[in-house]
Design a protein around this nucleic acid. Sequence first.
DNA 1: GTAGGCAGTTAGGTATGCCTATTTTAGTGT
DNA 2: ACACTAAAATAGGCATACCTAACTGCCTAC
Lengths: 147, 147
Amino acid sequence: MKVLAREGAHMPGEVQALPPSQAEPLSASLEDYLEAILQVERSSRVARVSEIADQLGVSRPSVTGALKLLAGRGLVTHARYGHVTLTEEGFRIALEVERRHLAIKDFLTGVLGIPEERAESTACKLEHVLEPDTLAYFVSYAKGRRR
Amino acid sequence: MKVLAREGAHMPGEVQALPPSQAEPLSASLEDYLEAILQVERSSRVARVSEIADQLGVSRPSVTGALKLLAGRGLVTHARYGHVTLTEEGFRIALEVERRHLAIKDFLTGVLGIPEERAESTACKLEHVLEPDTLAYFVSYAKGRRR
DNA sequence: GTAGGCAGTTAGGTATGCCTATTTTAGTGT
DNA sequence: ACACTAAAATAGGCATACCTAACTGCCTAC
C-alpha cells in the first residue's frame, strides 16, 4: 500500500532556476497572508505590516518576509516603509481563499452544528487542505440539505 | 479580529532544556510515521526502515531520523540495523491516529459520497487538523444519519 | 572464510516559516 | 528645523522535515 509522496517533498530533479513567480501553488502560509491582507484592507482602508502581523498573530519581520515573497509573485505591491496593496491577481486569490474559508465554516456550523468559534479556527486549517473538487462535495451536501 | 497564534510558532518563552520525551503533542509528520509503522507491522510482521519509507514515500534517511525522535519519546524501539517495534504507548497512539483516519474517511465516503481514493488522501490530511472534539461532531453526525 | 550487495546510518544541505534583537526610516510635535 | 517615536526592515537563528551522496555493517552465497 504505497502512499503518495508528501507535498513539501524536495524534488531537485527538475531544477527551477527562477523563483516561483507564477505557477506553483501558494503555500498555506502565503494564502493566509493574502486573506489577512484582504481583511485588513477592508477594515482599515490601507493595510500596514503591523496590522497584518496582529491579524495573523505573527511578528512583523515574518510579515515583511512574506510580503517579499508575495511581491515577487506579483500578488501584492509593497514599497519599503509603505502601504501594502493587493494586486488584481492577489485580490482575486485572496477572495478565492476567503470564499473557501466561508464555505467550510458554513458547513461546520450549518451542517455539523459546530460552535462559531471552533468552526472558525477549524475552517482556517481545512481551507488549505481540501482540494477544490473535494470542497465541492462539502458545498453541495450543505446545499442539498438546505433545500 | 485577532487570530490565534500559529501552531508551529517558536515560543522560546518557556525554555525546555530536555527533548520533548513525553507531553507536547506529536507533529503531524511523526503521527504519520507511527501510523505507517503500525500498518507495516501488520502486513509484514516486522517493520523495517525501507518498508516504512516506501509506505510513506520518503527516503530511508528520513525514516531513520524520525525513528530517532520517536525512540526518544519512547514510542518505538529501534536497535541500530535492527527491526522497528512500537512500544505499548506508541501502539496506543498509532491505533488512535488510525481510528481518526478511518472515522474521517467514513464520513467523507459515507456522508459526502466522496470516492474512495480521494477520501483516503483527504483523510490523511484532515486527521492532523481536526481536534478530537471537532472530530466528534463529524462522527456523531455520521452516526445520526446512519440511524 | 571472505566478497558483494543491500539495508541502514551518517553527513551535509535545502526549503519553509517562524522568532528576537538591532538598525533604519519616515512622519510628527514643538 | 530637528529630535523623537513608532513602524518597518535587516541580520541572525532555530525547528521541522525533507533530500542526496557517501559510508558502514550485516548476511548470504559461493
